[in-house]
């Protein structure tokens, strides 16, 4: 009897936690929409955040993109060589980087770097009463803390994804052409022939959506931080874990949806 109760209680509690979490995110989105309609943009804060998110993530995104492109080329070449189509490596690497690897890996890396920073910054402000101080001065925390980060992320994330893809393709070219001796014109013509603008658009859209996910999850964790430094640490960890998982799950459904709109394989 006791076991039956537990069997019901444990998933029930998890379900209630999930509903509660989604409700809190919904309230955050509502406050963010209100902040948007107030037309108070605090452009200096947006600029600061663009520097922090965009400029500060350069190394992470470039290294991730470049080495992903390089290793993907290395592995693909070995298999494609068996079929005698090694010059097509550029095509598969390009499409994979644009549609999946570029946005997902850039998203995960930016989520780890920027999401953690957002949750820690806002969380520290929360537990040291700086968020309450904002409220006391008549400033809504979402207006001041979340909106500038949200706008900065919307601008930065697609650019970071584009950068990640570009360096991935460059690294792929270097490995294929200089490492394996594939003629450059072959590599490039296959890459260009099998990649169209919609592959790039898909990467940008995914980057945009991942930016929204990272900002919402990280800011939410920061704003609900409590119990001092321990609470900030927990919030920061959760921000990275939850945003990473949500990005991976969202990527699956986004891929299906975007592939339905702009199907893969209609490039030639």
């Amino acid at each position: 009897m006791h076991t039956v109760t537990e069997v019901i209680r444990i998933p029930g509690r998890a379900f209630l936690h999930f509903i509660s979490y989604m409700g809190q995110i919904a309230f955050l989105v509502r406050d963010l929409m209100i902040a948007f309609t107030n037309h108070v943009w605090r452009l200096n804060l947006v600029a600061q955040q663009i520097v922090s998110i965009g400029y500060g993530s350069q190394a992470v995104v470039i290294v991730t993109g470049a080495f992903t492109g390089a290793v993907f080329t290395f592995q693909t070449y070995a298999k494609f060589k068996d079929f005698g189509v090694e010059s097509s490596v550029g095509a598969i690497v390009s499409v994979a980087l644009c549609r999946e690897l570029g946005p997902v890996l850039a998203g995960l890396m930016v989520g780890g770097r920027v999401g953690a920073a957002m949750a820690a910054d806002i969380g520290t402000m929360k537990v040291t009463e700086q968020v309450d101080a904002l409220r006391v001065m008549g400033v809504h925390p979402v207006d001041y803390l979340v909106l500038p980060r949200f706008i900065a992320m919307m601008i930065s994330m697609p650019m970071l994804v584009a950068e990640s893809i570009s360096f991935g393709l460059l690294a792929s070219y270097l490995v294929a052409v200089y490492g394996y001796g594939i003629p450059a014109p072959w590599f490039l013509s296959h890459m260009v022939d099998h990649t169209n603008q919609w592959d790039i658009v898909i990467g940008m859209i995914k980057g945009f959506v991942f930016g929204i996910i990272i900002t919402l999850v990280a800011c939410h964790q920061g704003l609900r931080a409590e119990n001092g430094a321990v609470g900030v640490g927990i919030g920061t960890t959760r921000a990275v874990v939850i945003s990473s998982l949500v990005m991976l799950i969202a990527n699956f459904f986004l891929s299906i949806l975007l592939n339905y709109i702009w199907p893969l394989g209609n490039n030639v």
Partner: peptide, 12 residues
């Protein structure tokens, strides 16, 4: 009304 917090809550 304004408020002084216990640890002043100045913006770092």
């Amino acid at each position: 009304v304004s408020m002084l917090f216990q640890n002043a809550a100045l913006f770092d």
